[in-house]
Every structure is written in C-alpha cells, then in structure tokens.
Amino acid sequence: MNEKDYLKDISEIKDIMNRSTRFISLSGLSGILAGTYALLGAFIAYKLLEDVNYNFDYSTEILKTNYTILGSLKNSLIGLALIVAFLSAITGYVLTKKKAKKNNENIWTPASRQLISSFAIPMITGGVFIFLLIERGIYGIAAPAALIFYGLALINASKYTLSQVRFLGVLEILLGLLALVFFGNGLLFWILGFGILHIIYGALMYFKIERN
C-alpha cells in the first residue's frame, strides 16, 4: 500500500464519520418557501390587526402586560402562526425527502432522528413558554421569544446537519434580542427573522449546494 492509498483511507474515515452523524439532505428550496409562508402569514396578521381598528403603533400599548386583545383575534393569530409552522414543516419534509432520494440518502437514519429531536426539544419548550405567556396576557415577548427559541433549536440541531444552520441560528437569536431592545416591533422582527432571513438562507444554500 502506498502513501496515496493511506491518504484515501483518511478521507474515507472522515467521510463516513460525517455521513453517519450528519443528515445533509435539507432542502434550500424549503427555506425559501418557509420564508414566503411567514411573509404571507405576517401580511394576514397585519390585516387582521388593522381590521379590528387596531392602532398599529403598539409600542406603548403592548407594555401593559394585561393588554386585552379581543379573544377571537388572539385565537386567529395563534392559529395563523400554527398554520404557517405546519405548512413549513410539511414543505420541508416533502422537499427533503425528494432531495434525499436524489442524493441516495436514507431519510430515517440515526443522524436524522438526532436532528429532529435536538431541534424539537428547544422548539417545543419555546412553543409552550410562549403559549403560557400569551395565556397570561403577555403578548410583547411572543415574537422575540419565538425568534430566540428557534435560533437555539437551530444551533442545537446544527451538529447533525449542514454546519451553516448554526450561523442561521445565531442570526435568529440576535434578531430576537434586538426585538426586545426595540420593544413593540415584534411583527417587524418576525418578518425579518422568519421571512427574509429564511429566503436569503434558502437561496444561498440552493445556489451553493443544490445547483451543482
């Protein structure tokens, strides 16, 4: 065996270690679509808020923790967020499955299971946290907390997938913290974090990885 073969051995070891711990067939296209759903959702939310003659300059109003949004409006906003999340998850699943098939990668592997559970734990924690806050009439923290928990979930999951996901997570957390600094602009930061950032990230991934 010569030196070249030993080099090949080392690259093979690296490749197998990577492939057995990372699920890399995440679709960039699903990021673009998830971002688009988030933008549509935010637009509908904006219209709903406008419809109830809601003064959109809510930077002062929201500070009152027992601020009472009409019950039905609250429910439709929560429903809207859930629909956007659900649609994004379904789209992500379908496109990822398609991509995995193309890459000849199995979709249900130890790596993908780790990916899902490491993402789901911070995300579900965040979801329950936000739901309980809203139940107590604390609305202002919902958008910043959603961004922060989502960012933490991404960073946690990035160990089991493309390392670039970690960077997206850091940006989401920064946006979440900024949303707290510029309190009362939740919808704006929601649009930036879940809409614009997803579209940019998805497009970068799509052109960088999927097109070659």
Binding site: I13, M17, N106, T109, P110
Partner: peptide
C-alpha cells in the same frame, strides 16, 4: 470502525446503507 467511533451504537441496516 469509523462509523462506530462517532456513534454509540449502530444497527446492521444503518451500517449497510452507510457503507
């Protein structure tokens, strides 16, 4: 061996797909 270095345990089919 490489796969078992970075995973606590792996089953037969996962190894088969991987390799």
């Amino acid at each position: 061996m490489s796969a078992l270095m970075v995973n606590d345990t792996l089953d037969f089919n996962t190894l088969k797909d991987l390799l």
